[in-house]
Simulated assay, not measured.
Amino acid sequence: MNELTILVIEDDKTIQNFLKISLQTKGYKYILADNGLSGISYFYADNPDLILLDLGLPDIDGMEVLRQVRQKSEVPIIIVSARGQEREKVSALDEGADDFVMKPFNAEELLARIRVALRHKGTVKKQMSEFELDSLKIDFEKRKIFVHGQEIHLTPIEYKMMTLLVNNSGKVLTHHYIQNQVWGYDTTDDYQSLRVFMANIRRKIEDDTANPRFILTEVGVGYRFADE
């Protein structure tokens, strides 16, 4: 039986029940909050392992809940919202959300996202010495990358982007976040140079750049490195 606790901050009773049943089937414990202030109180009182957060709450905006939680904790937060505009996704991810799932959603997809977020929580502070997925292998200690057993060359910037993505496997990284992490600043909304770097990396590591296995594009938002 799963001992992990998930806090659900959602005011729609139908979706609450759907989430409750979905979580129960996988053995997760759950706490239900139907407004933002209650959700924040439960967060402080119960120290959940993950939060499912709606943005359209009746008392305070879900983004404010996200900000308050992030000031105190790195607990994984998955936004579950009907707000589908790219700017909403980008804002939530830049504020510290781990993932964004659109309503209506498939239960199995949401549960998979939960597993990824929880796995990332368990490994984020653990420094990997080696990474391997399908045809790709990275030796972090030697700073070498191999595809199908053959060493490939990445420029320093490409290598930095690659390791940033791999160390956050399964998590959406926004254009803004990547630029800040790689170059230390983000002064423009023009991410063409970032796209060029990503295209170059894909050409070197992907068997089929039209259907990438490793670096996945979240249109208008950023990139996600495939989780196992």
Rank of each mutant, 00 (worst) to 15 (best):
G56T: 05
L118Q: 08
R87V: 15
L118Y: 04
V101I: 15
F140I: 07
E151I: 08
K121D: 12
S129F: 05
G149E: 10
V116E: 05
G122K: 14
Q71P: 00
I145P: 02
S129M: 11
L57P: 03
A112T: 14
V147H: 09
K121R: 11
M102Q: 14
V75D: 00
Q85C: 09
V80D: 02
Q127I: 15
P104L: 10
P58I: 00
T155I: 07
T155N: 09
Q150K: 15
S41W: 01
A45I: 05
V101D: 05
L136S: 05
T155Q: 12
K89R: 15
L50R: 05
A82E: 08
E141R: 05
S129Y: 11
E141K: 10
S73K: 06
I157H: 00
I51D: 00
I152A: 11
R115N: 13
L136I: 01
L55A: 02
E108L: 15
K126L: 12
I40Y: 06
Q85W: 06
I152F: 09
D98S: 15
H153I: 15
I79A: 04
P58F: 03
S81H: 02
Q71I: 08
I114H: 01
L110Q: 01
E108S: 14
V147Y: 10
R83C: 08
L57R: 03
V101S: 07
K103M: 11
S73V: 11
L133K: 08
L66G: 04
D46W: 01
A82F: 05
K126S: 06
F100S: 11
L93H: 07
P58R: 11
L52V: 03
P104A: 10
P104R: 06
K103R: 15
V90G: 10
H148T: 11
K137S: 08
Q127R: 14
Q150M: 15
H148M: 13
Q68V: 13
L133C: 08
P48K: 01
F43M: 03
H153Y: 15
S129L: 13
I157F: 01
S38F: 01
K126E: 07
D139A: 00
G62Y: 02
S129G: 14
I79H: 01
E95R: 11
S135K: 15
M102Y: 09
V116A: 09
R119F: 04
P156C: 04
F140S: 02
I78F: 03
Q85S: 15
L111T: 04
R143N: 06
Q68I: 12
S41F: 03
L154M: 14
D134K: 14
I40V: 08
E86R: 13
E132C: 13
D134S: 14
A107L: 11
A45G: 00
A117W: 09
P156A: 06
K125Q: 07
L66I: 06
T155P: 06
R87Y: 12
M128P: 07
L110V: 03
S81R: 04
T123E: 06
K121M: 09
I152Y: 08
S129H: 10
K89W: 04
A117C: 13
Q127A: 13
T123K: 01
L55T: 02
K103P: 10
K126R: 05
V101G: 00
D61W: 01
M102N: 09
R143F: 05
A97S: 05
R70E: 10
E108V: 12
N106H: 05
V116F: 03
D54M: 08
D61K: 07
Y44C: 10
E151Q: 15
R143Y: 04
E74Y: 03
P48Q: 00
K125G: 15
F43C: 04
Q127G: 00
R67F: 00
I114E: 03
